[in-house]
Nucleic acid binder design. Structure first.
Length: 213
DNA sequence: CGTATTTGACCCGCGC
DNA sequence: GCGCGGGTCAAATACG
């Protein structure tokens, strides 16, 4: 995960530099344009469309005052279990999509050990129905997400976000030859220079996660 | 009263 | 084979 994040950030950084020099085609800007920038940087990377993974992990920041583990992304979720794991005193919630009968989507949500404002949501399977409340994968304002790191190529935009800035990093491994020119700490420090508190919280939480990985 | 949530028991996989 | 930890299930409880 650390390698993937570093790799993706490096590519994004290059893409940003290229864009700053007006070398990118129109429409290839912003952090949520990962796929198109990726292709622009290395068109030979993948000719064939990779299979959509059945599981994805979303690392997001929520309001610490909000104790709910239900991620408000437009879908209707039903909590079906809760478990306290060994390495984390915060309970892990097991929730299922109740928007449509027979929908196989399951989600595991757990708070970070060091900073309870961070949530790690693990999605399994895919919805067999449309989301009538918003576009798929869209997190709503009540989730209070300010940072979202995704292991899928699907961006997770946030609406009416009171905690700027919002950033989505694609953590999907696009190849085996990953070059790590920057470490994760650099990534987190660079992504925003306007909010030191957020940076410190992200650093602490990421380091706690990487210690166990 | 119907639906959602909680909670503890049970099951299963993995490591020793 | 046994114990531990994670995931699921279902009865009990809460809530609108």
């Amino acid at each position: 995960m650390l390698e993937a994040m570093s790799s993706k950030y490096n590519m994004l950084h290059q893409a940003y530099l290229l864009e700053s020099n007006s070398q990118l085609p129109a429409g290839c800007s912003g952090f949520t344009r990962i796929g198109s920038c990726d292709e622009y940087l290395n068109k030979r990377l993948r000719r064939e469309v990779p299979a959509v993974p059945k599981t994805s992990k979303v690392f997001l920041v929520t309001d610490p005052r909000d104790n709910s583990l239900i991620v408000k992304d437009g879908f209707q979720w039903r909590k079906c279990g809760e478990k306290v794991t060994k390495h984390n005193p915060s309970p892990r919630a097991y929730i299922r999509c109740s928007m449509a009968p027979g929908c196989p989507v399951k989600k595991k949500v757990q708070r970070c050990v060091e900073d309870k404002s961070f949530l790690l949501a693990t999605n399994e399977e895919h919805h067999n129905h449309d989301n009538v409340n918003s576009t798929p994968g869209q997190y709503l304002s009540s989730a209070n997400c300010s940072v979202i790191l995704s292991t899928t190529s699907i961006p997770y935009p946030v609406l009416d976000n009171p905690f700027p800035p919002t950033i989505t990093l694609d953590l999907t491994l696009s190849g085996s030859n990953i070059e790590n020119s920057r470490n994760l700490r650099d990534v987190m420090q660079d992504y925003s220079t306007s909010n030191d508190d957020n940076n410190k919280r992200v650093e602490g939480c990421v380091s706690s996660l990487t210690k166990r990985s």
